[in-house]
Amino acid sequence: MDERDVWRSVDPLGEALHLLRMRGAFCCSSELSAPFGLALPAIPECMMFHVVTSGQCWLEVEGHDRILLQPGDLALVRQGSCHQLVSEPGATPAPLFDLPREAVSDRYEILRHGGTGAATKMVCGAVRFDHPTARHFVGLLPEVIRVAASNAPNPEWLHGTIRFMAAEAEALRPGGETVVTRLADILVIQTIRAWLAHAPEARTGWLGALQDPQVGRALVLIHRDPARDWTLAALAKEAAMSRSAFAARFTQRVGMPAMQYLVHWRMQVAASMLREEDAGLADVASRLGYQSEAAFSRAFKRCLGVAPGAFRRDAEAHEWVLPGSLEKVRAPGYNALQE
């Protein structure tokens, strides 16, 4: 089979979901009794999840209506959002990391907290997304996603997974923490899939572009092989469109021209490399298709407003662009790319 046929068989949205490769920051089995309250801090680059296995609690996120979570309900809270879990409105929350917890492993803990009232059991945790496409994707999600057990798209599967997770959390058999964290990863992806299937906003912007047959194919090609010497004509050929029709369609769906997006995407991959790898600038430049470190450095600074060396030295200070929020660039000194 010709390599281009393999590319064309890819489901672009499925490709993005496949790249939601998570690394569990932590997973906690919580045994709570009313009255109780937990204050959870914002954890940079992590998404928090909460699954109620028995009892109930209220999820409070600033700027959103209070949400009642009951057995089988699952909620995701996007990165950067402080929130609270309380037994009833008005309960005083205690900072999560100030409470004593039993460490079962580096990634799995047990929390017992509250008074002498009604019991609630939950599995809570945080997952981190490593791939630039995944970070791009997560940046588009709403601040809070809730899937109620009563209207879950696959309720039997969801309920069975939650029951299995609860049983593993309680039994603490060898390898139990690994099973729980893997199941949590699956639940997070299933929750995102449920949101994608029903949310009108998933049909617009970058997510909508991924679901466009021609533009989505081009996005996958760029994401998979950003170092390739792509031209507008080459991308249009892969999309089986004329150059002019493809250029107009890409700009309309994505919000920027294809060649501008290519450079932008390369810089997102570069930022990820600089934050997480020990590669030299020349190596990063080469891996992204630049013939010289100088050319790469100019493109990086033009896109993100800071030289790559300075970015690496103080990466945490730079809130670099996540795909889907291209109009809300916050890196200091950023100047929009010019065609």
Rank of each mutant, 00 (worst) to 15 (best):
M47H: 13
S9G: 14
D278V: 04
M165G: 04
L221Q: 14
C124M: 12
V321C: 15
E293G: 06
P153T: 05
A167T: 09
D11R: 03
S297E: 07
E170W: 03
A103Q: 13
Y108S: 15
V127Y: 00
G55N: 07
L99W: 03
P155Y: 12
H223C: 12
F49K: 10
R203T: 05
D5M: 02
S292M: 09
L69G: 03
A152G: 04
L326H: 14
W206F: 15
L210E: 03
G289I: 01
A166E: 14
A295M: 07
L196P: 02
D314A: 13
T53Y: 02
S29H: 12
A315L: 05
L326P: 02
R287A: 13
W7S: 04
P71N: 09
M47T: 15
R275A: 13
E277G: 07
P142F: 13
G205S: 10
D212C: 01
V329T: 13
R112N: 04
V215A: 02
E201A: 15
F97C: 07
R224V: 03
T251K: 06
P12C: 11
G139Y: 11
P226F: 00
E319A: 12
I110T: 06
G125I: 02
D98N: 14
P155R: 13
M165W: 03
R302M: 13
F129E: 04
E276V: 06
F97G: 09
L69C: 08
L13G: 02
S325P: 03
D2N: 12
E319T: 10
Q252M: 01
G160A: 09
W157L: 13
M273C: 09
M22T: 15
P100T: 04
I145E: 10
